[in-house]
């Protein structure tokens, strides 16, 4: 595990989580949450857990982002917080 890469990914992960939770547009929040999941997938590939990494890329980043965007289109994009 290369510690510089690890540290950079962890910082980007926290930044993505905070942006996804602070942004007021729910569609943008869903897309930033997809970015968060792909960063997590990269971190697991660095940790030599490739099986977890491609499960996260397919299921975590793909399907859950799709579910969230579908819910936003069925409901509303506005959020008060």
């Amino acid at each position: 595990m290369i510690w510089q890469f690890d540290t950079l990914l962890l910082v980007l992960l926290i930044v993505a989580a905070v942006i996804s939770l602070r942004i007021k547009d729910l569609l943008a929040a869903s897309v930033v949450f997809g970015i968060y999941s792909f960063l997590m997938c990269l971190l697991w590939a660095v940790m030599a857990a490739v099986d977890v990494a491609f499960t996260e890329a397919a299921v975590g980043a793909g399907v859950s982002t799709l579910f969230m965007i579908a819910t936003v289109y069925q409901t509303t994009r506005r959020s008060s917080d």
Partner: peptide, 25 residues
């Protein structure tokens, strides 16, 4: 603290992925 239901669910996912990250590490 978030009042929007989808924001709460994003928070739940962040929580669960943090636990998974700890275990994999």
């Amino acid at each position: 603290t978030k009042r929007n239901l989808i924001k709460k669910l994003i928070g739940m996912s962040v929580f669960s992925t943090a636990i998974i990250l700890f275990y994999v590490s």
